[in-house]
């Protein structure tokens, strides 16, 4: 148990180290003089020299890397070229909005996918199963930004039920916030719901054919009790893993969704940063996203290894 935890944490630290190397190298691959990149276009030679001194660009590359990692660990990710505000602060401003959006999206996805997946598995090959599989296939295939545009067209432009875009903080106007969040959250949650539904169905089918389910049935438990008390608990374990692994796709989806619904979150920030060539900001955002992904998946693995002794033994027995 303890060994498994240590192993998992060490692997995550190695992964984070590689990520930091990649991000550091990536920014150095930008063509041109980094000092000029940081200074922007309107800087003279003296100004460039000053920047080189200030950021230690004359030091050997490994020294630069160590300094950069040291600062990043302390929460200092440099400052935005455009606004001159610290990257960490800028991201911290935008992050809660995206977390709210992603949280809603996960809620919507889970609320649709789990009941539908369980139903499809229990009534296998029925019309419900067919319907759920068909919807899941559509959910994977539909480009979510197009779904968003179509929803705006239908719900906002034609029907006028909800505002098409914008954002108000929850504590200022809870209803207005929800009105503006529901469509983007639904759009962001669609692909996730499709993936989760398929996983729930498959793992429930597997669990329902297991021996202990037959035992539970044989001892006379009602069908419903077997499903709710015995099957779902085990059937949902792989679903949680998939949910963790889907976090990357969710973050990517948030970028697009925020763009369509003009939600001023993390995703809009990164697209803006790319177009304004705000390299420190892009670097910071990429680093934070990748690290968050690693940490979330570490938490997922650790938390369910605590819940299920079988997994932690199998996990320790040596997968990759």
């Amino acid at each position: 148990m303890f060994e498994f935890l240590v192993r998992r944490v060490v692997i995550s630290i190695v992964t984070l180290f590689v990520i930091s190397l990649v991000v550091f190298t990536g920014v150095r691959m930008i063509p041109g003089d980094p000092a000029r990149v940081m200074a922007g276009t309107d800087a003279d030679e003296a100004g460039l020299e000053e920047i080189r001194e200030k950021y230690g660009l004359k030091d050997p590359v490994p020294v630069q890397y160590l300094r950069w990692v040291g600062l990043a660990l302390g929460g200092d990710l440099g400052e935005s070229i455009r606004t001159r505000q610290s990257v960490a602060w800028t991201v911290a401003q935008k992050l809660p909005i995206t977390i709210q959006l992603a949280g809603f999206a996960v809620l919507i996805a889970v609320a649709i996918a789990i009941p539908a997946g369980v139903l499809a598995a229990v009534r296998r090959n029925s019309i419900w199963d067919l319907l759920a599989s068909g919807l899941s296939l559509c959910g994977v295939s539909v480009p979510n930004f197009w779904l968003g545009i179509m929803l705006i067209l239908l719900v906002s432009v034609r029907l006028g039920w909800l505002p098409a875009s914008g954002f108000v903080p929850f504590w200022e106007d809870p209803l207005g916030n929800l009105q503006r969040m529901i469509m983007p959250a639904f759009v962001l949650g669609t692909a996730l719901a499709a993936v989760l539904m398929r996983q729930t169905r498959n793992s429930m089918i597997e669990v329902l054919s297991a021996d202990y389910i037959r035992t539970a049935r044989a001892k006379g438990l009602a069908g419903r009790a077997v499903i709710f008390r015995h099957a779902i608990r085990n059937g949902l374990i792989p679903v949680v893993t998939i949910l963790g692994l889907q976090m990357g796709a969710l973050m990517g989806g948030a970028v697009v969704t925020e763009q369509i619904f003009v939600v001023p979150g993390f995703g809009r920030l990164i697209v803006e940063a790319v177009f304004t060539r705000d390299y420190p900001l892009v670097q910071g955002v990429v680093l934070i996203t990748a690290s968050a992904y690693v940490l979330i998946n570490l938490l997922v693995d650790v938390s369910y290894s605590l819940l299920n002794p079988r997994i932690r033994i199998r996990g320790a027995a040596g997968e990759s």
């Binding site: 990649v22 697009v256 992904y293």
Partner: peptide
């Protein structure tokens, strides 16, 4: 593992 940690769009 490290490679997978970068969401495709990012």
């Amino acid at each position: 593992d490290a490679w997978l940690a970068f969401p495709f769009l990012i």
